[in-house]
Design a protein around this nucleic acid. Structure first.
Lengths: 202, 202, 202, 202
DNA sequence: GATGAATGAGTGTTCATTCAT
DNA sequence: AATGAATGAACACTCATTCAT
């Protein structure tokens, strides 16, 4: 039983390395199995197929991340929208939580975000943007209720959602130290919030 | 020679379509040649290899773009940095010029930016970011000479360069009408300039 | 022992289903074991190999069938060949007996007859034909002894043996109700007997 | 151009041999190409895929056969059904024509009839039976119009169609000499016609 | 009594590339 | 100027079978 888990884990580990280097599509199951000291058939014992192996590398971190995000989203919508201060209040904590979950398995998430092309996880970043955009739209609606003289710039809303997501992707990609990441994200978040208030709501 | 040029052009046209649909890697030379009414061998008569064909699709638009950018960069550095107003003055014109060159062969540039993975043009976006970052660093140096009490946030500089590039990529990807693009980019540019002044220089 | 027998039986049952659907060759041991809630290894505990499992599905019905046939054959040869009436007398009873044994495990026999390709039972129909042909040859010899002015058409003898066998195979394949089978086989048998008398003996 | 045709032909020839020995499914493209002194890739230059190669072996003979059959069918329906004699008149010529086309590429047709499982030609015999059954049904209708006191035994009609087809399959399979085939088929045809009149029409 | 793990050989198929003609 | 032919390596995936435990 120890053995079984170790071989499986080794397979996942070698897959991680190969996916990181070559991306999903160009990754070779033969190379992965060989690196793990096994044959391709072994992959198909432990996983359904290439995509299943990819999932074994990235799915758990992804789910953890989604959970954090969704919890934050629902909390976010409960706060008093008339109180503009809140927006600049706790977003640092949120950012820190997100960074925390992102860096808990940084490699896996890098693969998920940048090397998934060809797998069933392809386009995950766009799905994140959509998710966030939906949330931001809801937020904007709440603001408009409180400040009826404002209007929403739809394109800006969409684009800033994109930038918001890419802020974290960029961090993950370019900053390998979690502490530094926490430090660097602060002014970025400030900037985003300010831009949100001034450019999404016009 | 007319004939040759037409076959060559048709090949490039069909390649454009295939690269757009499948990306560089998954594009099939057989499919491209067949669509052009030729055989794979013909590709190798007109172009060095698959990558050469890709270049024939994207290189000219890319060069045109680079030229515009570089000219702007050199003009930009000649202006008086002590005059902070300039920064918000003409950036609309610059944006319009860039959009103009981007949309003059939008498909080719979309391919270059999003479908080049596997080709020698892979990672072109990152190279744009680097280019811009270098320019922004030079700009920042000039500012610092004029305003010695300020400091530069390096990460912010890097990240905003990234966002600046992605602003245009996003536009190209999501807005198919050039006029609308010109309209939408304005507040985006305003936001970027403001962020630059407030967050890169701290 | 009860447990063992049940697992074994379940394995056979699931194998039957899979062989029926896919045929011997394309049937998957993995699929069979999984359907039985077991693993492939289990198959190799209960049976020698894939072919052994196939045998467990079809061999018993086959043996029962062969026994009925052989008994009929030996009885058939004991009757007085000079008495031509006998031939049209009891062949209905024989047909009914054969149908009875065929339909006692119709699925297994269908598999044996039509889905055995690749197994050691491949070509069983031809072996039935050979068997019957041998018997028919013996019969013909007896007739010739009684009616010395007749001759035997060898090819017709061979071919009618084939048709005789295929009459039952066709029935099994196309008529799922035993009672209807008994009804439909009658004119077929009449036809075969008549043809035998008129065309095998010329 | 000579070369091209020869390699293609050699490929078809080797395929024919392999399909004959192993059947469509178990035939190996690698073995075929190797036997032809080529690589598997070459197969895909000349043919679409494995099935396409199979088609190159069997399709032309099949079409020739279908043509003969269809012509015979349409002529057959034009004759005067009240004239029962016709039925025993020319069926020898028909049989000879069929045998002629069957033996013009006997190997290919044997493959088509017995080794096509897994290919798109699978079940061709059943389709022949259906075709013939449809024709026989039309014939029977005509007879009934002329002889209103008769009835049709549906099962017998179906089964005799099957036997009729299998008569030719059996011939092709068991008699390798065309002249002998022509000789052997005669009493078979007589028998079938007689059975038709006595057992299909009752 | 049966599992879980793993093998190793095999499959059809696709591809960019080459080159004689 | 371009074709038609062919290569050779790679690919994901499937399978019956084995065997230590």
């Amino acid at each position: 039983m120890d053995n079984e888990n170790e071989r499986r884990k080794k397979l996942i580990l070698c897959a991680k390395k190969e996916f990181m280097e070559k991306g999903f599509e160009k990754a070779s199951l033969r190379a992965i199995s060989a690196a793990a000291g096994l044959t391709t058939g072994a992959v198909y014992f432990f996983f359904k197929d290439k995509n299943g192996l990819f999932g074994a590398v990235v799915d758990q971190p992804l789910q953890r991340f989604l959970q954090v995000i969704e919890q934050h989203f629902s909390e976010d919508l409960e706060t008093d929208m008339a109180d503009l201060k809140h927006i600049s209040g706790d977003h640092d904590d949120v950012a820190e939580m997100i960074i925390s979950v992102l860096y808990s398995d940084r490699d896996a998430l890098l693969i998920l975000l940048e090397k998934a092309s060809g797998s069933s996880y392809e386009g995950i970043v766009d799905r994140f943007v959509e998710l966030l955009e939906k949330h931001n739209t809801a937020l904007a609606r709440n603001y408009l209720a409180a400040y009826p003289d404002k209007r929403v710039n739809e394109y800006m809303l969409h684009w800033l959602s994109h930038v918001q997501v890419s802020a974290f992707v960029h961090l993950l990609t370019h900053v390998d130290d979690k502490e530094r990441a926490v430090k660097e994200i602060k002014p970025v978040m400030d900037m985003l919030v300010e831009s949100w208030m001034n450019y999404v709501l016009e």
